[in-house]
Design a protein around this nucleic acid. Structure first.
Lengths: 212, 212
DNA sequence: ACGATTTCTATACCGGGTACACATTTTGCG
DNA sequence: CGCAAAATGTGTACCCGGTATAGAAATCGT
């Protein structure tokens, strides 16, 4: 991430970070729904409109790096080994990401606090669902492109929907286990077991298509 | 649905219907997001607070009969033929519902207007996602109960998640086809083809569990 | 150094939703 | 019947997220 030479964008990024930090601190302290945008603005020492200038929705201050997920999935499919099917590529990606202890899959107390904060807010759960829908659209497009089919190919939609459902269930189950047992390895094992089960099912559903 | 003898509840249901009708008409005329609760109250000739007394959320005036879906799924699993697996039971349920031209699966211009209104509103799409989550929870619980496992059995969660994803993709794809081709039979065929594909995948994923 | 562009900010507003208080209606019961 | 209790309808006032707009201040290119 290169430091921009521009003073303007440098300052802009600075205030954005200030707002983001203030918001994160308040969210963790008191829960997402018990923090108002005015309080965040005050804590960051900026005007209320400045907050909305940087973040269209209040939830965007919480889910900040949601574009990374899109890029990871897209790139994994773009750069896949032609000998490995798309579904299998994504299954292996999940294993790799868990091994690399990527954010969200770290299973430490700190990262789980973050997830717990999200689970405790109806607003954030709604936003998480919307983000998953966007991810499904990305996967659909990437799969269709990979197979040289139309962007809205029904099979691609089904595969993407099944995969997202698998990852969601696996992720939440792993979180549940970690919260209860405080055992990161156990959580990861459960996550990967569910991903493998789901991937196997998706492959079966996609038999006869280019996606399996 | 027996007519309640109670005058109180009879009146209550009457005003509820009045509100619901007024809301539906306005939603169809101008789209969900272009109708305010005040306008609905005025159209139904009741106070604003009365509206919120009957419908906790504005979206609830649109998605009214969402409890029926829950009951249908629960009952289908409770009364299933022991010789037919849960997943196969639900696959056959889908076929039966389509054949019975149940609401939502009628594929007539009128019912598709309803769906289109929902598709055109970000608010309603969000609510639809939430309802699907609740349905997944119901299916999870019903599957687990059927198998005599704990209510939060991870396999049941995965099966429910995969099934809901399948139905959602199939439903939306059928809607898309109907909107484009105005051919109800073609839409139904596409829906059932995707349900069959998805169900086959779920069965594969659930191999070795009581759900397949 | 100056005009154009961008960022920040205040003010005013909209709309969904809640809290609360109060009137009215209905019901159950002595 | 008559009356207390419970439930329903409704007005008022408020909170909060989000938008529109217009102006002030900082930054940039030349």
């Amino acid at each position: 991430m290169p430091m921009p030479t521009d003073r303007r964008t440098r300052k802009r990024l600075a205030t954005r970070r200030t707002i983001s930090f203030a918001a994160d601190r308040l969210f963790r302290e008191r829960g997402f729904d018990n923090v108002t945008v005015d309080e965040i603005a005050a804590a960051a020492d900026v005007g209320r409109m400045t907050v909305f200038n940087h973040f269209a929705r209040k939830e965007d201050m919480f889910f900040d790096r949601d574009e990374e997920g899109r890029d990871i999935l897209r790139n994994a499919l773009r750069q896949r080994d032609p000998a490995v099917s798309p579904v299998e590529t994504l299954r292996r990606l999940a294993h790799r990401l868990v091994a690399e202890r990527v954010p969200f899959l770290r299973f430490t107390d700190a990262s789980q606090d973050f997830i717990q904060t999200a689970e405790d807010s109806e607003t954030l759960k709604a936003r998480a669902r919307a983000i998953r829908d966007e991810l499904a659209a990305v996967v659909t497009a990437a799969l269709a492109e990979d197979a040289g089919r139309e962007a809205d190919d029904p099979d691609a939609r089904l595969a993407a929907g099944l995969l997202l459902a698998t990852w969601t269930v696996a992720f939440l189950e792993a979180h549940r286990i970690f919260r209860q047992a405080r055992d990161g390895e156990k959580a990861k094992a459960a996550l990967l077991a569910l991903v493998d089960k789901g991937s196997h099912g998706v492959a079966a559903a996609m038999a006869g298509t280019p996606y399996a």
